[in-house]
């Protein structure tokens, strides 16, 4: 019955110093409701990694807390062995599509250029070179023809592709994508998948919050099963099985959930050692 929590990928045993993402004891609570509890996780490099779990399991919160967008109650994050703050330039982020106002007066190219802002730096405007780069990124997601369209005139899938292009423009090594497949058309789904494969082929790591269990084995190499706590993580072929899914999606959780809810109300007092 008991099993171990794997912290390594299938091919190599990555040490923490090499791993794209290493999470230790991560706990996050929103208004005292625990969302994530005691996550320990190390992800392998150069793979497509799905983060799977039911609604409200804390998938998005996981990504946001790693990126420092949500305060962590406890826990440490390291990206390629160093703190996230010092490795920001290696990390790309694709937020949920609903997180922004698509009526905002910018066109697709402007949004993609935002991926270059850090590179451009303070005060300097976006110049021709940057625009060229942004256009290249749009080309990669098949959206070059829409570069000068206002973003509200794009379909949902196209908006999602614009967000992907923005992350691509960052030229990161590790990408976090929050539900990129949610509510997109088939063409976009395929475009995203081929993009993910391309990223993998050049050695990038992609962590993707995913809601469609059916496609996990075909799209991804590695899977993280999450439901408030880490159920399991590892290569799809070993970890993505019925037993783990049952653990993730239902049953036998009531007692633990109850306890976690209560626990989240406690102040942090030093615990005694036995």
């Amino acid at each position: 019955m008991a099993h171990t929590r794997k912290t390594a990928g299938s091919k190599k045993n990555y040490t923490q110093a090499q791993a794209p993402l290493c999470v230790k004891d991560l706990t996050v609570a929103y208004h005292r409701k625990p969302v994530l509890w005691d996550i320990d996780l190390t992800l392998p490099e150069g793979q497509l990694i799905a983060v799977v779990g039911p609604n409200g399991a804390g998938k998005s919160t996981f990504i946001k807390s790693v990126l420092g967008l949500v305060p962590r109650a406890s826990g440490a994050i390291s990206i390629y062995g160093k703190s996230y703050e010092s490795q920001r330039h290696l990390v790309g982020y694709v937020p949920q599509r609903e997180s922004v106002d698509w009526d905002f007066p910018v066109n697709a190219l402007d949004v993609v250029a935002m991926g270059l802002y850090r590179q451009i730096g303070w005060f300097r405007p976006v110049n021709k070179n940057h625009r060229k780069k942004a256009l290249d990124s749009l080309e990669k997601v098949g959206m070059a023809n829409y570069a000068y369209r206002q973003i509200s005139q794009l379909s949902g899938g196209q908006q999602q592709r614009v967000f992907l292009a923005r992350a691509l423009a960052q030229d990161a090594r590790l990408y976090f994508m929050d539900e990129p497949f949610a509510g997109v058309d088939a063409a976009t789904e395929r475009a995203i998948i081929s993009l993910l494969k391309e990223l993998k082929s050049v050695g990038k790591t992609c962590v993707v919050v995913h809601h469609d269990l059916q496609t996990v084995p075909t799209y991804f190499d590695h899977v993280v099963l999450l439901n408030m706590r880490l159920v399991d993580a590892g290569p799809v072929e070993t970890v993505f099985n019925e037993e783990n899914l049952k653990k993730t999606y239902g049953g036998r959780l009531t007692l633990l959930t109850h306890a976690l809810n209560e626990y989240a109300k406690t102040p942090q007092f030093p615990s005694n050692t036995d």
């Binding site: 946001k64 990126l67 982020y93 937020p95 997180s99 922004v100 106002d101 905002f104 910018v106 802002y117």
Partner: peptide, 13 residues
Amino acid sequence: MVCFDADYGMTQG
């Protein structure tokens, strides 16, 4: 950027 997508700006530092 802050007006459009503040979170993204934060991830960029």
